[in-house]
Amino acid sequence: MYKSWWKILGAVLVTYSTIAGFLASVPPLPILHQSIRNLYFHVPMWFSMIILFSISVVHSIKYLSSNQQDDDLKSVQSINAGIVFGILGIITGAVWARFTWGQAWSFDVKQNFAAIALLLYFAYLVLRNAIDEEQKRAKISAIYNIFAFPMMVVLLFVLPRLSDSLHPGNGGNPGFNAYDLDSHMRMVFYPACLGWILIGCWIYSILFRVSSLEKNKQI
């Protein structure tokens, strides 16, 4: 039980932030109105994705130095989990955009770059499936992943800031800070971020254990 404390904590935080996200009061802001509640779901999805991709690139580096098969499995399964959260991030963002910008996909610069960043990791999975030889697949995938990660960072955090965007914090728009993220929202937003990150790591650990068992059966 003591080894699973972080899983319990993740489940508690997600349950709390979900209930509070729908029921707790939010500041009366123009344009956003009640849709600002999506902040508790949309942003944590992206944070979870980035953490999982970070875990993946660490294991890719470890694989190139150790050639341990477990590092390759951990790398690919953290990407599988990260992609799920990336898709959820795009879906929740599209729903939010529909109610605040008037359409689900307005080809906003950050929307476009986020989609491209996610496609980089879909390409990673395609690359793995195209190579049959196990060690060659693991090595090439690790090298690709090491280059894909900084590209993802640039696409999500650097390029959008160089042009106008409807997203908060870009193109002169104020970010979610003292302007609209009051103390009551922080009490829900921060636990939501931590909770979803822990759930993402839990999902990744389950995927790794399943793939490891399947691997052992084949030997």
Rank of each mutant, 00 (worst) to 15 (best):
N80M: 10
L198T: 01
G89V: 04
H42I: 06
Y121E: 04
I31K: 06
S65E: 02
I116T: 08
A123V: 13
A123D: 02
F41M: 06
V57E: 01
G172S: 08
L39V: 11
Y204S: 13
R186A: 10
G195Y: 10
M45G: 01
K217E: 13
A142M: 09
K7I: 15
L127C: 02
F99G: 01
E214H: 13
S35N: 13
V14R: 05
S141E: 04
A11C: 12
F99Y: 13
V14A: 14
S66N: 09
F47I: 14
K62A: 11
D182T: 04
C193G: 01
T100D: 06
D164P: 11
A138H: 06
Q103I: 05
F47C: 03
F99T: 00
D164N: 14
I50R: 00
G10H: 09
A142W: 06
N38R: 02
P28V: 05
L52F: 08
L52S: 01
N216E: 15
N67W: 09
A178F: 11
S205D: 10
V76E: 14
G200D: 12
G171Q: 09
V57S: 01
L194H: 01
W105N: 02
I146K: 01
L159N: 01
L13F: 09
S106C: 03
F113T: 08
A94Y: 12
